[in-house]
Design a protein around this nucleic acid. Structure first.
Lengths: 113, 113
DNA sequence: TTTCTATCCATAGACAATCTATGGTTAAGC
DNA sequence: GCTTAACCATAGATTGTCTATGGATAGAAA
């Protein structure tokens, strides 16, 4: 089953990095952004998001910094690093290759043996 | 990371069902077919394939039958059931929705708040 | 005839990623 | 004062995939 879940497994990092490409953002905002931009089709649960952000921090793909939000709250803002930007490029191209490959299987009419 | 692995997680059942849509096939043949049709981009490991086939059997989406292959070997042929065909349709549409949603995120230029 | 390769099956255990459930803080509106 | 929305984060369960392993046999090659 293609994910009874809210996300296609294996795509979370990609989505987070892409979201941070535009501007630094806090966790809550990242989740909101992905939900909004995907027209509610993708929901990132907090239990997936925060562990995910920890992974990205460990990899050095983002940095984190506590700041105040526009709504006057403390929040941890994540910023894409140069390495993160590079990684995003890699992941996008891998993802596109996967999509193309799956597309070939789904489109297959099979001529050869 | 979008799968350092050979497959996009969450797409295996889809690939198997689609492969069986054309004709009944044994496990080994399914793996070969997916690899060939995807131009070597997708490799289904046996350790993923056979547990996957067990899941599909349990769900009633395929049936299995021992037969002889063209190469004179015993092999277990899997056949898509009516329920399996229906499931395949569901998975394709879910998958396409996911792809569209991820596409929106990747294409996003963000105008609104 | 032996050895190798490709064809076939399948499971156990490790590992990674996601989800559910939980728990906490605080600003602002009512 | 209460409630809701905005925020953070972790533990544990679950699921899916991979690695590693083990086995059998046909046919080609040596």
């Amino acid at each position: 089953m293609v994910s009874k879940s809210d996300l296609l497994p294996g795509t979370l990092d990609l989505l987070i990095l892409q979201t941070l490409k535009r501007a630094p953002l806090h966790g809550y905002g990242i989740a909101q952004s992905i939900k909004r931009v995907s027209d509610e089709a993708l929901t990132v649960e907090e239990g997936s998001l925060y562990p995910g952000l920890q992974r990205l921090l460990l990899q050095g793909w983002v940095t984190a910094e506590w700041k105040m939000t526009e709504t006057n709250r403390r929040a941890r803002y994540y910023t894409l690093t140069a390495a993160g930007r590079k990684q995003l490029g890699l992941e996008i191209s891998k993802f596109e290759q996967m999509m193309a490959a799956i597309g070939r299987v789904l489109a297959d009419a099979e001529e050869a043996g």
